Simulated scan of single mutants.
Amino acid sequence: MKLIRLGIAATLPIVLLASSCTSSDAGDPGSGSTTTTPAKPSIAVSVGPAPTQYNQGRKSVNFDPCVGVGDSVIAKIGFDPSSRKRMDQIHDDYSFIGCSFDQNGTVDGTTMTVRQLTISSTNITLDEFRKRDGTSSTVIQINGQDAIVHPDGPVSCFLETSGPDGALDIQLSIVQPHSAEQPCGNIKDIANVVQGAVSGK
């Protein structure tokens, strides 16, 4: 990655308690409401923990795509979940916590990586990305949210939209030799799936 320059709800019967109930009844685990913890995404290949952050003047990045984006999401957009590997950037005043994934294809009879995808959560805001890349970026909508898309040379494209910690940063790179594919032409479909999975985290 380039460096940044800057369910089914159970219906419970209602039981009317007699007026002689004491306050201790409220603490009975059988009579109180329960809290449901969201299930963690299924991930077959584990990675190491995110590195220590510094973030002078900013809040830490809390959402980690390496553990927060499941294998089913990665497979849905055509990448190999087993290629999951950590791809972080830690600087004095901002951080990117991310994961990268490969997509394999056959080129001249040889199986090789043809595309690479990096998904990061960063504490840089979408407005900061707009200011930095405004002249080279295109504004689009991702699941009804503003996003910006901008190329990074002929074989790589970035998309940023609002995320859990500031912005969700997605990079698509074409590594197949002699490919005529335009990465910015395909990144929106990928981002729609990824952002939908991350939304609300």
Rank of each mutant, 00 (worst) to 15 (best):
D146L: 05
T122H: 02
K131F: 08
I90F: 06
G57C: 04
K85A: 11
C157Y: 01
T22W: 06
T11W: 06
I170Y: 02
S24A: 12
N123P: 10
A147G: 14
I90R: 04
D102C: 02
S100Y: 01
T138C: 03
Q182W: 08
N55V: 10
T118D: 01
S46Q: 07
G163L: 05
T125A: 02
P81Q: 00
S137N: 10
P13Q: 11
I124Q: 00
V194T: 02
Q89D: 07
G166Q: 08
I170T: 10
A147R: 01
K76A: 15
G78F: 10
D189M: 04
A9R: 14
V114W: 02
A197M: 02
A44L: 10
G166T: 05
G144S: 13
T161H: 02
L159T: 12
I74Y: 00
Q145D: 13
A50S: 14
D127E: 15
S19A: 14
S42G: 12
K2Y: 11
N192V: 07
V15C: 09
D71T: 01
V47G: 06
S100N: 14
G185T: 03
N192G: 01
C21V: 15
K188L: 11
I187W: 00
A167F: 05
I140N: 11
V175N: 08
V193D: 07
G105N: 09
F158M: 10
V47N: 01
S156R: 07
I90T: 01
L3K: 15
Q195Y: 10
E181Y: 05
G185I: 13
S137T: 03
I14Y: 07
D108W: 03
S173R: 12
T122R: 00
I190K: 00
K76R: 13
K85R: 15
S82I: 04
L117G: 05
F79E: 00
P51T: 03
C21L: 12
S60F: 12
Q89I: 08
I142L: 13
A44H: 11
T122C: 11
I4G: 04
I124C: 01
Q56V: 15
D152N: 11
Q53E: 14
T35Y: 13
Q182K: 15
V107K: 05
S82L: 07
K2P: 10
D152M: 01
D88C: 08
G200Y: 05
K2A: 13
F129W: 09
D152C: 01
L12A: 14
G7A: 15
S72P: 04
M112F: 05
R130D: 11
S42L: 03
Q176V: 14
D102I: 00
Q195K: 04
I97Q: 00
F101S: 01
N192I: 07
F63W: 04
G144R: 10
V149T: 05
D80C: 09
R132G: 03
K131C: 04
